[in-house]
Write a protein that binds this DNA or RNA. Structure first.
Lengths: 145, 145
DNA sequence: TATTGTTATACTCTATAACTATA
DNA sequence: TATAGTTATAGAGTATAACAATA
């Protein structure tokens, strides 16, 4: 029985724990956290380099290298955009999609191992609060969801 | 009015948001996230290179460079350990402590801007759940608190 | 022999600035 | 001129392996 952490400290500590889990799992697949994140983003949508840079909060030149390395490993492809010859879209390959799924499942397993002992009501309340936090942050930072 | 995120997805997304905030604030002070974290760790305690490596989850050789760069900026110092001539302790300097405080306050301000609109009861419940998560994780990973 | 830390080296990741090609 | 992307370059951060000094 210990005193609860301050909310800000708790959020920061928790973020380091989650990132540590994510980083360890990514590392096992020889992915950087950024690469794993890119694959997760591309699971849903097909986007250009600039948009990818925006989502990952990187410079466009950094995304060039990021996509280069993933493309060399056969995880993503650059495809031309019809009607705009200077643009490319990045798409995830079957191999990349498979790795993204493996990554997602591994993260889920490891985090669920910690959250799983919460009652289902407690999990729901926590999901609700976290969702609210994310939406409030997104609203105040003009982040598209 | 949207559906709540899945708990695992929410925790992962939230961790990226918090890390983004932390990274942006650290960047303004020309610190990497790891350097800021090191300063925060050293605010409380005076430890050796190996222990620091353990806390930051880095190899000891990486910590050599990390401490070198911080020492060159006058943020930390290596001091000898009485009674063990091969060991050193890393301590935060007044300048480093000042920067750590500035960092801590800036992070607090930005995160509080998001959490502040929660009712105090809601904040308490959230702190409680997050504290429980952190302790459960620490217990299952043999992390000293 | 084991422990604490550093050095040498190489690679990934990232940013800045300049560039190419297209709109 | 503006937009989408790449290239050239440099620096930070990290790891592995070998090393030095002390316990």
């Amino acid at each position: 029985m210990t005193t609860d952490l301050d909310l800000v400290d708790g959020l920061v500590q928790l973020s380091f724990i989650v990132q540590s889990v994510v980083g360890r799992i990514a590392g096992r697949m020889e992915l950087s956290v950024t690469q794993a994140r890119m694959l997760a983003v591309l699971e849903d949508r097909e986007i250009g380099m600039l948009e990818l840079a925006g989502i990952l909060e990187l410079e466009k030149s950094s995304v060039t290298g990021l996509v280069d390395r993933a493309e060399q490993r056969g995880l993503v492809s650059r495809v031309p955009v019809p009607g705009n010859r200077r643009a490319v879209h990045v798409i995830v390959t079957p191999a990349g999609r498979s790795l993204a799924g493996e990554f997602r499942r591994a993260v889920r397993a490891e985090i669920t191992a910690v959250t799983g002992s919460f009652s289902s009501g407690e999990q729901d309340r926590l999901s609700h609060s976290i969702t609210a936090l994310i939406y409030r942050y997104a609203a105040s930072h003009a982040i598209p969801l």
